[in-house]
Amino acid sequence: MATAAAQRTARPQADGAAAREPADYQRVFDAAVAADERIEPRDWMPDAYRATLVRQIAQHAHSEIIGMQPEANWITRAPSLRRKAILMAKVQDEAGHGLYLYSAAETLGTGRDELLDKLHSGRQKYSSIFNYPTLTWADVGAIGWLVDGAAITNQVPLCRCSYGPYARAMVRICKEESFHQRQGYELLLALSKGTPEQHAMAQDAVDRWWWPSLMMFGPPDDESQHSAQSMAWKIKRHSNDELRQRFVDICVPQAESLGLTLPDPDLTWNEERGHYDFGPIDWSEFWDVLKGNGPCNEQRLTQRKRAHDEGAWVREAAAAYAAKHTGGAEAAAHETTGAERA
């Protein structure tokens, strides 16, 4: 540990004097990644590494806040007070995850406003899974079990990501996601063991969410645009297909315990591989939803932009108040803005 700390101290920093050649910076960065050390905000890093992280963290943050919508859709209709409390807490957690992640992106020099602007103008994406609608109460369970389950499978390895602030945010997020996954499973179990109508509602939800959940791991490895470089940088630790397989292997026995079936006739245990085989994924649907043609793309983005636009006067008021009441040069600068606005 002492050695690692010493090396970290010796690592050139982005804002330090340019005492070394860029080639030295690159060598020290590469060595740190190779040694499984964490890259920290003030360390030098290649521009492409920074850009990849910003893109990935932003997409993740956007997914958290857009992902609030399909579940918030059921807060006002939750069928018991206990379920209502759980669902509100879960949606609140997602807002909190959004906050950690935007903060992690900020350590790379990109602020929340800029990222939100890119989300609102369609220049940055969020996970396509949230472009599917939550049609019944059971969808809340299916999202918890399958969507959060897939997210955890993707995210647990990110706790060891080479970029420190992202990795640390993920530790906390994964703990909460695991609670979300369990509540989804438990919600579906109650429905599955409930009345015939409740059981049918649970099965219908699983039928609709299963394939989109498998698509959450991204395109097959041979078509994945960013994977190889991200793995070399230890931002990503496992390939899309590996993670997808891991998820399928976890879900099959869980579906059995739930008393629900997964909508794939090809799902069979392969003794030789030690994994479940599963049927072909309809990638044309994935690309279509990604391009904006999913059932809710328009609705999700419109609601997000409306909330942001309708909240503008509140944020402006808070800034104007801070400028009036904090004093100092910075405040004076803000005050000018406030006066212009008034």
Binding site: Q69, Q92, A95, G98, L99, Y102, Q303, A307
Partner: peptide, 10 residues
């Protein structure tokens, strides 16, 4: 939920 003026307010 999902409509607040800032993430902190959510």
């Amino acid at each position: 939920a999902g409509h607040a003026p800032a993430l902190e307010e959510e």
